[in-house]
Design a protein around this nucleic acid. Structure first.
Length: 225
DNA sequence: AATACGGGGTT
DNA sequence: AACCCAGTATT
């Protein structure tokens, strides 16, 4: 049901979504770089952590550890210091381990550019692999985080229940079906999907009045008076 | 499939 | 006092 709906309107949906993003997106630090390392750090920090809190630590962390190699050479205690206040400290340990692993395999240390290889790195799951592949390497890869899952469910599959494993897989399928044709457009597309969930199609309140895709939204269609 | 992992802001 | 937030690894 959700997949058929997505396939039917994917071109219109994508055009509306990306146009809205270009006009309304926030100017966030990690959107000003294509450096895979800087993108990776932002994605790891943002796991289950609000943008506002990551903003407090992101710049300073990169100042102390400007490259993957610099991070690989750092003492664990220094890395944990720089992570202080962000919580989920296993992320910092994983990032440090990742840096040292990648640094051993080549000089200078470089991240792999495809999602499957990224996925095998410590602390990098399906979401982060898709994010780094599409944001840093402009690969045509989907990504699903809490924002994307909510947007996809409301727009294409109100019947889906994210707590069910099968439905989670279905949401990934829909996200892949929605991807634009090129990797370059995928960067904007994925950013836009998350931004819509963060600014308009938010968890508690839906701001359908300023939603660019309400004309193709199943939830809006069902709830309108 | 369920749970641990942080901590601070919002409702 | 819940609920929420750019999830992942482990059981």
């Amino acid at each position: 049901m959700a997949l058929e709906r997505a396939l039917a309107v994917r071109l219109r949906f994508g055009r509306l979504l990306r146009a809205w993003y270009r006009a309304h997106h926030r100017d966030l630090p990690w959107r000003k770089t294509r450096d895979p390392y800087r993108i990776l750090v932002s994605e790891l920090m943002l796991q289950q952590t609000p943008v506002s809190r990551v903003m407090l630590r992101y710049g300073e962390f990169l100042e102390r550890f400007p490259t993957l190699d610099a991070l690989a050479r750092a003492r664990p205690a220094r890395v944990m210091e720089a992570w202080a206040g962000l919580g989920y400290y296993a992320r910092a340990r994983n990032l440090h381990r990742l840096a040292r692993t990648v640094a051993e395999s080549g000089a200078p240390a470089t991240l792999p550019g495809d999602a499957a290889a990224l996925r095998s790195l410590p602390g990098v799951g399906a979401y982060t692999a898709g994010a780094v592949a599409s944001f840093a390497f402009e690969q045509r890869e989907a990504l699903v985080d809490t924002n994307v899952a909510r947007v996809v469910r409301r727009v294409f599959g109100p019947e889906l229940d994210v707590t069910r494993g099968g439905d989670r897989r279905r949401i990934w399928e829909v996200a892949r079906a929605l991807l634009p044709r090129t990797g370059r457009a995928t960067y904007v597309h994925n950013q836009a999907l998350m931004e819509l969930g963060a600014l308009v199609c938010t968890a508690r309140v839906r701001h359908c009045g300023r939603c660019p895709v309400r004309s193709v939204c199943a939830t809006y269609e069902a709830d309108r008076p």
